[in-house]
Design a binder for these strands. Structure first.
Lengths: 145, 145
DNA sequence: CTTCTTATTGACAATGATTCTCATTTGCAG
DNA sequence: CTGCAAATGAGAATCATTGTCAATAAGAAG
C-alpha cells in the first residue's frame, strides 16, 4: 500500500506493518477463542468450537483471520502429518516443537544456539530478513510401549 | 487383524516385517525414478515425470508405493508449507535448505551438529525413530539490491 | 509349464481441507 | 452523516490424497 501524504507525494509501504487491519467482531472472537485454547487447533476445529459457543462465524473468515494473524506472527503454525495446519496463539519467545507422530502430542523446546546459528548461516549466504522453521518428529515413549 | 489360514486356524500378523512385498514393474520404475531425482519431489510430480519418460503408471499406485516405502523407511518425507508431501530417496545425504522468499532460489546447507543435537533432545524427551525438518528463509542478496 | 492364490494395479469416485467468487455488510476516516 | 474500501459469508471450486473394486500378474506349488 502506498501512503498518500498531504502534499500529494506517496511513500513506499513499510513492508512489515503495512497490512490494513480493521477491528471486527469476528476477528476479535477468533483471536479470543484461540487465546483460550492452549494447545494447537485446526481451523476446522476452531470454527466448530466457535459455533458451539454461540459465535457463528463463516469458515472462510476463520481461515482468512488465521492467515493474516500468521503473517503478522501472532500465531504459530505447524503441519500435522496428514498436511492439516494447526494454529496456536503465539507464545512470547520463539521456540520449536518435538511432535509425536503417533498421538500428536507436542512439547516445546528451546534452542537458542540454533537461532544464532541460523542467523549466521543466513548472513554468510548474504540473506537478510531471516526466519526459520525447525520441527523434530518421532514416537514418544508413551506410544512406543 | 487375524489372518485366516486354509486349515481354518488363524495367526496373528507379524507387526514388523509382515508386509508381503511383490516385485513389480511399477514399483521398480518408481523407486528408480525417485533414486535419480536428487531433490525432494511430490507424488504428483513424480507421477507426471514417470509418464513423461514413457512409464505410464496409475497415480494411486505411485501414492501406494511411496506410502509403503515410507513405512519401510526407504524414503524421507517432508511437508511443504501448503501441506503437500514431498519424498526423497533415503540414500542421499541429509541436508537442509536456505530459501529466498522473493525469488525462490534455494541453497543446500549442512548442519551436522544440528543433527546430533536433534537426536539428543529427542532421546532426552523419550522419543524414538526420530526425524526432523529445518528450513531457513530470507531474502537473498540478489533480491535485496 | 500349468494352476492357484492373492497382492497389486488402475480408472474413477469420494473425501476433506483450503481457497476462490461475489454480492452484501460494515469499519472508519473525512 | 457519507463514501468507500475492507471484511464477511454462503457456496462453488480446487486439488492432493484416499477408497473402491474389477481385472491383472507375481510367485509358490504341483
Amino acid at each position: 500500500m502506498a501512503l498518500t501524504n498531504s502534499d500529494g507525494t506517496t511513500s513506499l509501504p513499510d513492508n512489515t506493518a503495512s497490512i490494513k487491519q480493521r477491528t471486527t467482531k469476528q476477528r476479535t472472537a477468533i483471536a479470543a477463542e484461540l487465546a483460550q485454547t492452549k494447545d494447537f487447533i485446526s481451523a476446522q476445529d476452531l470454527h466448530s468450537q466457535l459455533k458451539h459457543s454461540g459465535q457463528v462465524i463463516g469458515l472462510s473468515t476463520v481461515y482468512r483471520a488465521l492467515a493474516t494473524m500468521s503473517e503478522l506472527n501472532e500465531v504459530d503454525v505447524i503441519l500435522r502429518e496428514d498436511g492439516e495446519a494447526l494454529y496456536r496463539s503465539c507464545s512470547q519467545n520463539h521456540h520449536h516443537h518435538i511432535v509425536c507422530t503417533k498421538c500428536g502430542n507436542t512439547n516445546e523446546i528451546t534452542a537458542e544456539f540454533v537461532e544464532a546459528w541460523a542467523h549466521d548461516v543466513a548472513s554468510a549466504h548474504g540473506f537478510s530478513d531471516v526466519t526459520h522453521t525447525l520441527e523434530i518428529m518421532g514416537v514418544c515413549s508413551h506410544c512406543t510401549s
